[in-house]
Design a protein around this nucleic acid. Structure first.
Lengths: 269, 269
DNA sequence: CCGAAAACGATCATAAACGATCAATTGCGA
DNA sequence: TCGCAATTGATCGTTTATGATCGTTTTCGG
């Protein structure tokens, strides 16, 4: 067996298990201990895996603690204030007892802080949102079925027959990768598929995006602009976008980060 | 078991309870007290947990308190050792890569500790199990759709059309309220309905019950006894129950304090 | 305030893992 | 086909992790 083959096998093995022992790899490759050690050492200096006593482990910088919360925390420490302000306006639209759909995302996640004191029926495909609401609020929480994708903390299913069809809501709240005249844009086809399922179950679509998203383009169109009823953004919105939104007949809400809100967001954390 | 795996398990365990004792961790990892102490010390200087007398605790004491973990802790009590032993045997039945179904419950929940170092496809209706596995393991996690019931931390849906139908597993693991000649018994009709959905999607049914359940009766029958392929219980099983199980052609596994688990009976007293 | 039990820290023997070295084998190009 | 270099496997001395033991400290209850 060649060096390359072994390296392939080793790299594959460390993905399978939390730690692949030298013995494991000896059995897998039929090579000697010495060779495996040399391979591990080589891959270690190449930065392809991490060497630990007894074997090797995958190089995932994410250790164990916080897989679910991480993508949210890495997302823009600066923008979190704007996202909170937007989320605050979004929750303000809701009446007690309302049935709402919240699509997973870093902006919509901020809604949980303002939902803790409310009592709504919340349907969400975000595992993180569900987790937070179950623990820290009395809202009724409902989920679609499917696999949990850790990166986005989202529940996705390729199947049509899930309980999403049985849930109806007046409003659905969602973020997006970008917005333009062509419509609301996302990056990933799987995510589009999941979001379209949800969109069908709601009357009004509330789009929550910070102003930077007006510049950004993405390749996949989720839905046309006129499907959106309400758009919440911050005061950095460019005039061109404002015109575009008004022409599309969308209700525009500007969430300002005022003094009063700044103090509150800190206490909500 | 390797150092990293122990560390994983330890970090996972401290999330579970306000404080994980050295004895707990010895049981979970089958390592000696000295090793656990050294691990705790190491993780402490790494800042991944806080060392306290008697064991270790999580750095962020938040999470556990409120809703999700509560029903588990009240019903844990002293049976937790037996439940752990049973859960250990259950996980031992699984081969890497297996697709399994785990029905929510306090006994089955203990499986998460032994699943942290595994890589399986897990379908569960327990929000708590899903949460733990998403955070502390690399298992693929799938959920049915429905409402989250906080008391049991279970996802229930009255609808037939959910993704459960699209998942198939060789084994399903479940607890129960009681077992008798008439079959496996549960208390709640809604829970029965949910469990029956799952049962249909698995070949083998693995029942996990501590021996006290053989006495207990309940009003609702979940399924006949011969639907069960394997039953895991502890060594307090009465002879009458043993006969009943053997007559039904069920494979019986007694999770005792055996060689693998070493030196805990003395300290347990 | 005292005594028992648990928890702890230190130490030591053992076994596993490791690194270095060297001989044997393989691969590769002339 | 030959020869050289690189790779591999085995051996051995060293390092490290582990588990058991023992003496000390802390905690708890009387």
């Amino acid at each position: 067996m060649h060096e390359r083959e072994r390296h392939r096998i080793i790299l594959s093995a460390v993905q399978e298990k939390p730690v692949a022992t030298v013995q494991d790899l000896v059995e897998l490759t039929s090579a000697s201990e010495a060779t495996i050690r040399r391979d591990i050492a080589a891959l270690h200096v190449q930065g392809r895996l991490r060497r630990v006593r007894g074997g090797a482990e995958a190089l995932h910088p994410a250790q164990i603690g916080s897989l679910a919360a991480k993508p949210f925390r890495v997302s823009e420490g600066e923008n979190v204030a704007k996202k909170r302000a937007i989320a605050r306006e979004a929750v303000a639209l809701c009446t007690e007892g309302d049935a709402i759909i919240i699509n997973g995302g870093t902006t919509t996640f901020q809604m949980v802080h303002y939902l803790t004191t409310r009592r709504l029926q919340v349907f969400t495909n975000s595992f993180a949102i569900a987790e937070h609401l179950v623990k820290h609020s009395k809202n009724q929480v409902m989920l679609p079925g499917g696999s949990i994708y850790r990166d986005q903390s989202i529940i996705l299913s390729p199947f049509e027959n899930d309980v999403t069809r049985n849930f109806y809501a007046r409003r659905m709240f969602m973020g997006a990768q970008g917005v333009g005249a062509l419509g609301v844009m996302e990056q990933d086809a799987l995510i589009i598929q999941a979001e379209q399922k949800l969109i069908n179950q709601a009357d009004e679509l509330v789009l929550m995006i910070d102003a930077s998203k007006f510049q950004r383009r993405s390749s996949l169109i989720l839905c046309p602009l006129d499907r959106v009823s309400t758009l919440i953004t911050d005061d950095a919105i460019p005039d061109s976008a404002r015109t575009m939104i008004e022409n599309a007949g969308i209700k525009l809400i500007i969430a300002g980060v005022t003094a009063g809100q700044a103090t509150e967001s800190s206490s909500a954390a």
